[in-house]
């Protein structure tokens, strides 16, 4: 079964072809990062405009890279949410219409399900059940994953997402947009013993996160210091250490609470080198193993949507002709795939 995956929930146009027998055949990505850089954040209307402009050329490129005829597609999966509604609608309208015109089934995929299943695209995928830490610019979640469509949220951020806190802290240090990766690079040069930031919500039990106070702490610390490169690096380092440490503490709790050793780390912040190192050590110390999707599948991409869609289409799921797009869509409302028509 050959599945086309379409992802347009935010500022990346991602397309991929996944085949049940041969695995991932091709994936292409167009990032709008430069378009939004001038504004210091994603401008929804500009994002939607860019998706509709880039989708078809990118689709042609995808089939060219895969070296197969578009008529060979057996099903279409598109991201239906959560995300920016206007951006979602472009990919959803395109995907649902392609499927209709080809006469093949379509499924609306939950963006976070795509992220949660992304490690299954790699060699040596984790077995179910596993614990997933999903950390990105929009989400910070700890999820128990029992199987495709079986998700239980163990903890989540009560305010800012981890990636959002990274970006905002980077902004106050005047780092270029998007700030997260730039902040991580600056942190490499920072003295880890200069400053120490709090580890929010680790003193009390529970698996929820809060990063908004940490961002404020960073701001107040930065204001109290001379604005030198050394001090900026020290703030970056102290901030990154605090976020990483907090995530590690919560992951340890989640593994111990559930008695599961397999830890999947997904989402854009999951590409952070220091976070990866610490979580890898943690999982080993807990007698388990950490799994990381390859970096290009940590950030938004079409491959994870193609794969999640493939799993659902294989189980017989087939949506009606409605073009589905929803800005808010709770992850734990999903059901395991079955031969049902979603309507």
């Amino acid at each position: 079964m050959l599945v086309l995956g379409i992802e347009t929930s935010c500022d990346e146009t991602g397309l991929a072809l996944y085949d049940g027998d041969c695995g991932l055949l091709a994936h292409v990505l167009y990032s709008q990062v430069e378009l939004h850089a001038d504004y210091g954040g994603v401008v929804p209307e500009l994002a939607s405009r860019d998706h509709v402009r880039k989708a078809i050329p990118l689709l042609r490129e995808l089939f060219r890279q895969a070296g197969i005829d578009a008529g060979a597609v057996d099903g279409v999966a598109y991201t239906a949410g959560p995300g920016l509604i206007g951006a979602l609608l472009v990919g959803a309208a395109l995907g649902r219409s392609l499927a209709w015109a080809w006469g093949v089934p379509a499924v609306a995929v939950h963006h976070l399900e795509g992220h949660l299943l992304a490690p299954l695209l790699d060699a040596e995928p984790p077995a179910f059940p596993f614990i997933a830490l999903l950390v990105s610019g929009g989400h910070t979640l700890l999820v128990w994953v029992g199987g495709v469509g079986e998700y239980r949220i163990l903890g989540e951020s009560v305010d800012d997402a981890a990636g959002e806190a990274f970006d905002k802290t980077a902004k106050l240090l005047n780092l270029p947009y998007p700030g997260g990766p730039a902040l991580a690079r600056l942190a490499e040069q920072g003295n880890p013993d200069r400053l120490r930031f709090p580890r929010p919500m680790t003193e009390r039990p529970g698996l929820d996160f809060s990063f908004s106070g940490l961002k404020t702490f960073a701001l107040n610390t930065w204001r109290s210091l001379e604005p030198s490169p050394d001090n900026a690096a020290a703030v970056a380092r102290a901030f990154e250490d605090a976020v990483v440490d907090t995530l590690v503490i919560k992951c340890r709790r989640a593994l111990r609470q559930t008695g599961i050793g397999r830890l999947v780390v997904a989402g854009g912040v999951g590409a952070n080198r220091r976070l990866r190192e610490h979580l890898r050590e943690l999982a080993v110390a807990e007698g388990g193993r950490a799994y990381f999707p390859r970096p290009e599948f940590c950030t938004d991409n079409g491959a994870m949507i193609a794969y999640a869609g493939y799993r659902r289409l294989l189980a017989g799921q087939c949506d009606d002709l409605a073009i589905r797009a929803t800005a808010r869509w709770p992850l734990d409302s999903l059901q395991p795939p079955g031969p049902v028509v979603q309507s």
């Binding site: 939607s48 509709v52 995907g95 209709w100």
Partner: peptide, 19 residues
Amino acid sequence: AFTGVRIAIAVAQGIAFAT
């Protein structure tokens, strides 16, 4: 309406690409 226009365009793109 921007969103409405884009729905029609994306649908037309999809049908045109497929056929």
